[in-house]
Simulated assay, not measured.
Amino acid sequence: DSCPSVYVVMRDEGTDDPLNMLLLTASPYEGQDYADNGEDIVEKVPMPEGLVAWVRDFALTHHEHEAFVKRRRDHERVDLKQDGKGDARIRQTSDVYRAPNRGLV
């Protein structure tokens, strides 16, 4: 679907009023964030021609191209250092959030 669209985010506040409009955005990523929370209703609506022209002009005026730079990994082993905190997903026999002993390095 290549039709320019806006995303209307609505929320049911639990009152007698119909849905309250929370946000109107042209960003599909922002619309998706609201759709993922499960509390809001997000509807995709075709963008009016005047708004298409305004968004195009805005993007042409303010866009700054950024060259892609691939992130390089450092090869430091971060798993070798004990910081006194455990993984909450792993059952431990003792309190993993206790203050470390003085004798430990």
Rank of each mutant, 00 (worst) to 15 (best):
S2I: 03
S2N: 15
P4L: 05
P4K: 00
S5V: 01
S5N: 03
V6L: 12
V8G: 05
V9T: 05
E13F: 06
E13C: 11
T15Y: 11
T15G: 07
D16S: 05
T25G: 02
A26K: 01
A26G: 09
P28R: 03
P28Y: 02
Y29S: 12
Y29N: 13
E30M: 06
Y34M: 12
A35I: 01
D36I: 01
N37T: 08
G38E: 03
G38L: 06
E43T: 06
V45F: 04
V45D: 00
E49F: 10
E49T: 10
G50E: 10
G50F: 02
L51N: 03
L51C: 01
L51V: 15
V52D: 00
V55L: 14
D57E: 14
A59R: 15
T61G: 00
H62P: 00
H63G: 02
H63D: 04
E64R: 05
E66R: 12
F68W: 14
F68L: 15
R71Y: 03
R73V: 07
R73H: 14
H75L: 05
H75G: 10
H75S: 08
E76V: 13
R77V: 08
R77D: 14
R77E: 04
V78R: 13
D79E: 14
D79K: 03
K81Y: 08
K81H: 03
K81E: 09
Q82A: 10
G84R: 07
G84V: 03
G86T: 07
D87Q: 08
A88Y: 13
R89L: 13
Q92T: 14
Q92C: 09
T93D: 15
T93M: 09
T93G: 07
T93C: 04
S94H: 13
S94Y: 12
D95N: 15
D95R: 11
A99H: 04
P100M: 06
N101E: 11
N101Q: 13
N101Y: 14
G103P: 02
L104D: 12
